[in-house]
């Protein structure tokens, strides 16, 4: 990894673009969900206003240091994912801090935010938060298993843990994508994708209609704003990884926007047609269907 100081403003610039894009795409997806339900839906700029509003609230209540750090960890999970993964292939500006082992780091960051959230929500002392966290962790862990297996499978396939090299290997033709060279791994990874996108049908642990909002029950104002930011950035960051690993990466912002939207849309599509699963149902689903596919993907390479 060749570090240069110019990379820091470059990475921040990338981050800004992705955050703005993520807020926008989140609103679009909410609007799609609303239209499916026959509603008009929120304005596309609503998420920006909500963010400003939450920062503008005047009173803050704290429950201790971990309560502060919870949203920070959560956001770190999302931002770290972006910072250490090349966003646009072949662009100097948007390479971020990628290095030869960044795939492992990305896997770690996907889980990091959830763990930070667990610590913070636990400190808030609200029973709903504790229940939400334990249910969320159980489900995310189960959903991560097929993804981890798929990542092993493609790192065996490409003989590298460097995301940039994996993207490079997929360039040229659409048939060089992992989607076509290793479909089993992609299938397994998609289980993990829909499972950790924090959307229906796998969002029972933070759905407002269930045990009220789950982990963020006690969070408000600026803490909540941080978590909202993560709520929009994290799925996009995850989508970027999937795009890089399985769908040929992106060589410019246009392709990026298109691919992220299409991938995001997969989980939205599943979300609007499926009712929410209970936690034990979704864990069983991931272990029963996701896990064998992941193992098959490793065996097939």
């Amino acid at each position: 990894m060749n570090f240069e100081w110019i990379q820091i403003p470059y990475a921040l610039w990338t981050l800004l673009i992705i955050t703005v894009y993520a807020l926008f795409i989140m609103a679009i997806m909410q609007k799609i969900g609303a239209r499916v339900g026959g509603r008009y839906g929120i304005p596309v700029y609503q998420n920006y206003i909500d963010l400003v509003k939450n920062f503008a609230l005047r009173s803050h209540i704290t429950h201790g240091i971990m309560f502060y750090l919870g949203p920070v960890f959560r956001l770190t999970g999302g931002l770290g994912l972006i910072l250490f993964v090349p966003t646009i292939y072949g662009s100097v500006m948007h390479q971020n801090f990628h290095y030869s082992g960044d795939l492992i780091l990305a896997l770690y960051f996907i889980f990091f935010g959830t763990l930070g959230m667990a610590l913070g929500a636990g400190e808030s002392g609200h029973p709903h938060a504790a229940i939400g966290v334990s249910r969320g962790l159980a489900q995310v862990t189960a959903a991560e298993l097929p993804l981890a297996l798929a990542v092993f499978s493609i790192s065996l396939q490409y003989q590298t843990l460097n995301i940039t090299e994996i993207v490079a290997a997929q360039q040229g033709s659409i048939f060089n994508w992992t989607l076509f060279t290793n479909p089993l791994a992609v299938l397994a990874a998609m289980f993990g994708f829909v499972g950790t996108m924090m959307r229906a049908p796998f969002d029972v642990f933070l759905a407002p209609q269930e045990i009220p909002t789950g982990p963020p029950t006690e969070y408000h104002s600026a803490y909540l704003a941080l978590m909202q930011t993560n709520r929009v950035v994290f799925p996009v960051a995850k989508t970027i990884i999937y795009m890089n690993l399985f769908f040929g990466g992106a060589t410019n912002w246009g392709a990026f926007a298109l691919k992220v939207f299409a991938l995001y849309f997969v989980s939205v599509l599943i979300g609007v047609v499926m009712p929410r699963f209970r936690v034990e149902q979704s864990i069983r689903f991931f272990l029963k269907w996701g896990l064998p596919v992941g193992i098959l993907a490793i065996l097939a390479v």
């Binding site: 609303a34 339900g37 026959g38 509603r39 008009y40 839906g41 929120i42 304005p43 609503q46 206003i49 909500d50 209540i61 709903h128 407002p208 209609q209 009220p212 909002t213 963020p216 029950t217 006690e218 969070y219 408000h220 909540l224």
Partner: peptide, 19 residues
């Protein structure tokens, strides 16, 4: 719900008083 859909005007329902 669809008939009046207050979400259009930035009005949302939250489950906890903190939010």
């Amino acid at each position: 719900t669809p008939r009046f859909d207050a979400y259009r005007y930035g009005i949302q329902w939250r489950a906890t008083p903190r939010q």
